[in-house]
Simulated scan of single mutants.
Amino acid sequence: MEDEIARGYWPNQIEFLLSCLGYCIGLGNVWRFPYLAYKNGGAAFLIPYGIMLLCAGIPMFFMELALGQYVSLGPSVIFQKMAPLFSGVGWAMVIISLLTCAYYNLILAWAFFYTFASFSKDLPWGHCNNDFNSVETEC
């Protein structure tokens, strides 16, 4: 047990809280939630959303935090130690996290690319002499 690498810890509670908020509120939530609320009925969408958040979202998030804090293990090990039958659940969580990181990085790369490309002098959408314009396009 002594030769294991020591796990990191949070020096104070506010850093833990800010880390949890950063984990919960991702870039996709900030960009997509207003669109989904508008598309699915505006304020009426907030009622089932709030109910599901209170009944399922927050308790599952709390369970994940509590299990991780209590046993100080990652998801690939914790489910195997709790019930060997559920070891696939932990590995599925790891794989889903890796895939999510991959597509979030791709979305951010596109945003950075087009942001910096928009600082060029000639923008493709600045004139109508492009190959991708249709004949009907008028300037």
Rank of each mutant, 00 (worst) to 15 (best):
N40Y: 09
G42C: 00
L108M: 06
A109V: 01
L65Y: 09
F113W: 11
C20G: 14
V89M: 05
G88F: 03
N105A: 11
G90A: 04
S72M: 07
F62V: 14
A83D: 10
A111H: 09
L85M: 12
S76I: 01
I95W: 01
L17F: 05
K81T: 10
F33S: 12
A111E: 09
C139I: 10
Y9N: 15
E138P: 00
T100C: 15
P84F: 07
V89R: 00
S72H: 13
C128M: 03
G57V: 02
Y104I: 15
V71N: 07
P48K: 00
L98Y: 05
V30R: 03
A109L: 12
L17A: 09
G42M: 00
F116M: 15
C24T: 10
Y103G: 02
G50C: 06
G8F: 04
L73F: 02
K121N: 08
I95A: 06
F132Y: 14
V135F: 15
G90V: 05
F79D: 00
S97M: 08
W125N: 13
S134H: 14
V135C: 08
G126Y: 06
H127E: 05
D3H: 12
I47W: 08
A44N: 12
L65A: 15
I96D: 15
Y103Q: 03
L18Q: 11
G22Q: 13
A6K: 13
N130F: 01
A37D: 06
F45E: 03
G74K: 14
C101W: 12
A117S: 12
S76H: 05
L65I: 14
Y35P: 04
L73M: 11
Y49L: 12
F61C: 06
A102P: 00
M93Q: 07
G22H: 11
P11Y: 08
M52E: 05
P59L: 04
A92H: 01
N130G: 10
I14P: 00
I95D: 00
E136T: 11
F132S: 10
A44Q: 10
S118G: 03
Y9Q: 14
L27Y: 11
A83V: 09
T115R: 09
W10A: 13
N133L: 01
E4W: 03
W10P: 01
L21W: 05
G8Y: 06
A6V: 13
L27F: 07
L106T: 07
A92V: 06
G88S: 07
L123C: 14
I58D: 02
L85N: 04
N29R: 05
I47L: 13
F62E: 04
G26W: 02
A37W: 04
